[in-house]
Each structure stands twice: as C-alpha cells, then as structure tokens.
Simulated assay, not measured.
Amino acid sequence: MNAIEKQIQLEPNHRLVNIFTGMVIIVLLLWSISAFSLDNLTANGLTIAKNILLGLVNPDWNLLINFTTGGVPYLLVETMAIAFLGTIVGAFLAIPLAFLSASTIVPKPIAFIVRLLLILVRTIPAIVYGLMFIRVTGPGPFAGVLTMSLTSIGMLSKLYVDVIEDLDTKVLESMESIGCTTVEKIRFGIFPQLSAMFLSIVIYRFDMNLRDAAVLGLVGAGGIGAPLIFAMNAYKWSEVGSILIGLIVLILMVEYISNKIRTKHVRG
C-alpha cells in the first residue's frame, strides 16, 4: 500500500487545470445559451409545430401509395438514386486524389498541395455547390448528382488517406523481393488491405449523401426536398407527414442494409 500511496503522491496535481477548464466550459455554455431568443416563438409558430405533428399522425396515404412521378415512392427512389450515383462517382474519383495526398506514397510537397486542394473542396457546404450547379445545368437530378460527387470527393479522399498511410509496406517489400510487378503488388498487396476499409467508408458516405440529397431538393437539385418545401409553404401538413414518413422509412432501411453489409464484410 505504501508503494501505491507514493505513486499517487508523485502524480501531478491537475486540480487547478481541471477547475479552470470547467469554468471556461461553463462560461462558453452560458454565452452560447444567451444567443437563443424566444421572442420569435409566437402562438402561430406553436400552431405550425402542432400541425406538423398532426400531419405525421394523419398522413396522406394516397400520396404514400401513389407510384406516379408525383408520389412519395418515386421521389424517394429518385433521392436514393442521386445519393447512390453521386457516392459512386465521388468514391472512384477520390481514389487517385487520396494516393496523391498520401505522404507515404508521393513526395511531401505534392501531398501537401493535393491535401490543400481537398481542404478547399471540403470547406464549401453542399447547399452552395447545389446552387452553383443548378445555375450551370439547370434544376434537376443531374445537379444533385454533381453536388453529391464533389462533396463526396473531399471527405472520402481524407478518409482514404488515413487508411493508405496505415498500409503495411512490409508486404509490398516482400512482394518486390520475389520479383512481383507493380500491377501484381497493387492487385495482391494493396487492394486486399484497402478494400474492406474503403467499402466501409463509402457506405458511411452514402448514408450521409442520402440525407444531403433530401436537403438539396429544397434548392431544386432533384429528389424529395422540393415537394416537401412546397407542401410546407402551402400548409398541406398531411402531405408533409407523408413525405417525412417516407424519408424516415427509407433512411432506416438504408441504415439497416448498410450495417449488414459492413458487418458481413468485416467478418469475411
């Protein structure tokens, strides 16, 4: 016990540091709360919130089972297609950029320049990209796909780099010593190490893109966002409830399937 007590006494005393840190956090919390204002919370706002909840409880079932281009199922499929295609395009384009920004693969100056470019890509929100592409291509799903692709490249490249830099180079050195070609080293040395992590990263990004695709519809980039905002502006709360229910079901299904795929791939 004496040795333990001595060890405890030798431990540096962080009491003052912890107290100061706690006080800073409390001050920042109080300062953040002061930014909230309930002055704009009128009776009309509470009524709208109540109507949205009622719309969820009493959705427009005709809209939910309408399989035309104006129905919820079609709009959900369009939203998922935008997110899926944007993720796939971004995932493939991010691979060469990730290798170019990996300091263990290319010279550090090149890696720094490419990383700086990817940081610039990530700093711009998806909604801004959506507005830009709508001006170029016009409103529609194509603008949504371009937006999803570009935003995916920034994040996926960063996550790819983390995986690439943790690559076991001893395997490649062993393959080189027995005379393997570059193609063989990539095929049998690099790809097996990266494929599982890359797939998990891409699935994770698809989950994010699915939510972003619904938001992009608000600015006319295709998907279910536009009908949602139109229904809210027209105070058609039963339609709002139908669209929100469809979104919830879609996201839960995608989340379940993606978790199954990730778990199966990791076990495999």
Rank of each mutant, 00 (worst) to 15 (best):
N2G: 13
I4Y: 10
I4P: 06
Q7P: 02
Q7C: 04
I8Y: 03
Q9T: 10
E11F: 06
P12K: 12
P12F: 07
H14G: 05
R15A: 08
L16A: 09
I19P: 00
F20I: 11
T21C: 11
T21K: 15
G22Q: 09
M23S: 15
M23A: 15
V24I: 15
V27S: 10
W31G: 10
A35S: 15
D39F: 09
L41E: 08
G45H: 14
T47A: 15
T47N: 14
I48Q: 10
I52N: 09
G55K: 09
V57G: 11
N58S: 15
N62D: 14
N62R: 13
L63Q: 13
L64Y: 08
I65H: 08
N66R: 10
V72N: 03
V72S: 02
P73K: 02
Y74G: 00
Y74V: 02
L75A: 05
V77E: 07
T79V: 02
A81L: 14
I82R: 03
A83G: 06
A83D: 05
L85Q: 14
T87S: 15
V89I: 15
G90R: 15
F92I: 10
P96F: 03
A98R: 05
A98Q: 05
F99D: 05
S103N: 15
S103W: 08
T104N: 13
I105K: 14
V106P: 04
P109G: 09
I110Q: 04
A111N: 03
L118F: 10
I119G: 12
L120K: 10
V121E: 02
I124H: 01
A126W: 00
I127S: 01
V128E: 02
L131A: 11
L131M: 15
M132W: 14
V136F: 12
T137W: 07
A143D: 05
V145T: 01
T147M: 13
L150K: 12
S152W: 09
S152K: 14
S152E: 09
I153H: 02
I153C: 04
M155Y: 12
L159V: 12
Y160C: 04
I164P: 01
D166A: 08
D168F: 00
T169D: 06
K170S: 11
G179P: 01
G179C: 07
G179K: 05
C180K: 07
T181P: 04
T181S: 15
T182V: 08
V183K: 14
E184P: 00
E184Y: 00
I186M: 11
F188C: 05
S195R: 14
S195E: 09
A196I: 13
F198I: 14
L199N: 06
I203F: 12
I203N: 02
I203A: 03
F206V: 04
D207I: 02
L210C: 05
L210N: 02
A214H: 00
L216N: 00
G217P: 02
G223M: 00
I224N: 03
G225L: 07
A226Q: 10
A226G: 06
P227Q: 12
L228M: 13
I229G: 03
F230T: 03
M232E: 03
N233P: 01
N233A: 13
K236D: 11
W237R: 07
S238V: 00
I243Y: 01
I245A: 03
I245C: 05
G246A: 13
G246Y: 08
L247F: 05
I251F: 09
L252K: 06
L252C: 07
Y256A: 11
I261M: 02
V266R: 11
R267S: 11
R267V: 06
G268V: 07
